[in-house]
Design a protein around this nucleic acid. Structure first.
Lengths: 121, 121
DNA sequence: AGGATATATCGATCGTTGTCAATATACTCG
DNA sequence: CGAGTATATTGACAACGATCGATATATCCT
């Protein structure tokens, strides 16, 4: 049992910390994982994904702009973040850009998030 | 089929936006949900939760400080955020504070996150 | 070509969050 | 009581993210 110290030692107060690191979740893994959470960490992005999930492939930016409480450059900004994260993609048809969700990418994020959270419950 | 317009109309270019809002995810719900994601959106907090999940009830702040690449006030800061979010709790024994994970609270966040993501895959 | 429209990008501003040194608080032990 | 230690809090600063007006780009229509 390396890395653990006797509970009695701690209660009696002779020492507190063990001498082995308590984590095998590396800093880089934690960083990547926190990015997975962060991309979902904004209400506008959640609403965008929700809309794209419900309206398969038929949503253009003006649809989104009309439904969201932010201006058009802000919508474009969040669309770009979602696109760079791979969660959505778009296809230009003439003047308009039709966005759609990448369900496989969402599933991958969900899997990574769940793999982290599951041992914690 | 209110809220949908014919795909031909869009392709032919006579109009773009429908006249019904595309979302039933309210702004307040989206805000709460994004908070659920955001609390996990930092590598230090992920590492803390990971450590607490593995070492049931026996982790004090100096354990965490020793394992993490930030100073003690920063550890305390993130512990406070996690505590205010209900994800962890602590018990002071003498000079030390022993932190432990609230698995029920984590499970609730996970459920909320999954309920949102599941329809998107 | 020229006017109109949809979307993207730029650039500035602003609020939020993370970090840490310094300090406060609370406890232990001699 | 006084020195020592663990943790929390404060306050300042830096970094980052969100937002939007202005502008650029691309396309359509006449």
């Amino acid at each position: 049992m390396t890395g653990t110290i006797d509970i009695q030692e701690r209660i009696l107060g002779t020492r507190c910390c063990g001498d082995e690191p308590l984590t095998d979740l590396t800093a880089t893994t934690a960083q990547e994982l926190s990015d997975d959470f962060l991309i979902f960490g904004h209400p506008i992005r959640l609403q965008i994904l929700h809309m794209l999930g419900r309206n398969a492939g038929q949503v253009c930016v003006c649809d989104l702009e009309a439904a969201l409480p932010v201006k058009q450059p802000t919508v474009s900004h969040h669309l770009r973040l979602l696109r760079e994260a791979g969660l959505i993609d778009c296809e230009r048809q003439g003047l308009w850009a039709y966005y759609f969700i990448n369900r496989t990418a969402v599933a991958q994020r969900w899997a990574a998030i769940s793999a982290y959270l599951q041992p914690l419950v």
